[in-house]
């Protein structure tokens, strides 16, 4: 093997002139985390609404929810990314489309929207499964007490369902975090993109990728630790 390791490269200034290569990777990490959090907010909110729609007795609500899930699950994320970034501005009225294209940080906002809508379909499936796993009597009991449908979901069904699906939601959160790297194709300067740039500038390919790998693993560990804490805090005494 002829590869020459040089870990010192991380502390050499990057040609961008804004700091060292390590700074460059860390700024990539910041964009990755920011994008993951922003898109998760959309995914969690929208996914909960769609998931609830799929458990309502209304046929129309069910059909809309099912169509949403199928649409966003059966098109590759990269294609969705291109649709949001290249196609959507063209389909908007010309003036709005032009404004969207010139927006600063357009790749960031596009990635947040794209990942949010994409992950919402997966969150919706989990929420639906969580609600379906509750005994039917729970909804009946809420209704019998005079709670409205919305109140029954808000106070009885959802708090219980979220606790049940916390582990799969954690893995969806991690998937969403990893998926932010797909946004490098539309120019988001997230962690993988920055590692790639470092490799191109410095030719120290394995230092760049190893550092990025370690950063991803560190974020993973933080998320898993956070989820464990959350699970412990939300645990119901006497619950299974």
């Amino acid at each position: 093997m002829t590869y020459h390791w040089n870990w010192g490269v991380l502390f050499e200034p990057s040609p961008e002139g804004t700091g060292t290569y390590a700074d460059m990777l860390l700024s990539g990490l910041a964009w990755t985390v920011l994008t993951a959090l922003g898109s998760w907010a959309i995914a969690f909110g929208l996914g909960s609404v769609i998931g609830v729609m799929r458990t309502l007795p209304s046929r129309a609500a069910n059909a809309v929810g099912a169509a949403y899930v199928e649409l966003f699950r059966n098109v590759p994320l990269l294609v969705q990314m291109f649709l949001w970034y290249f196609v959507l501005p063209e389909l908007l009225p010309a003036r709005i489309g032009a404004a969207v294209k010139q927006m600063p940080d357009a790749p960031f906002y596009t990635a947040v929207l794209c990942l949010g809508f994409f992950t919402a379909a997966r969150v919706a499936e989990q929420v639906r499964a969580g609600i379906r796993s509750l005994p039917r009597g729970q909804a009946l009991a809420g209704t019998a007490l005079g709670l409205t449908v919305a109140q029954t979901y808000r106070f009885v069904l959802l708090p219980h369902a979220y606790r049940i699906i916390l582990p799969p939601l954690t893995s969806e959160f991690l998937n969403n975090l990893k998926n932010t790297s797909v946004a490098l194709t539309i120019g988001l300067l997230e962690l993988t993109a920055r590692a790639r740039a470092m490799q191109e500038f410095s030719f120290q390919v394995f230092e760049a990728f190893t550092a990025a790998t370690l950063l991803y693993l560190a974020v993973n560990l933080v998320v898993v630790a956070g989820a464990t804490l959350l699970e412990r805090r939300l645990a119901v005494p006497g619950g299974r």
Binding site: P135, G137, L140, A141, P159, H160
Partner: peptide
């Protein structure tokens, strides 16, 4: 109800 249906998270 037959199965009580208390809300287990409360």
């Amino acid at each position: 109800f037959q199965h009580f249906e208390l809300f287990p998270h409360l």
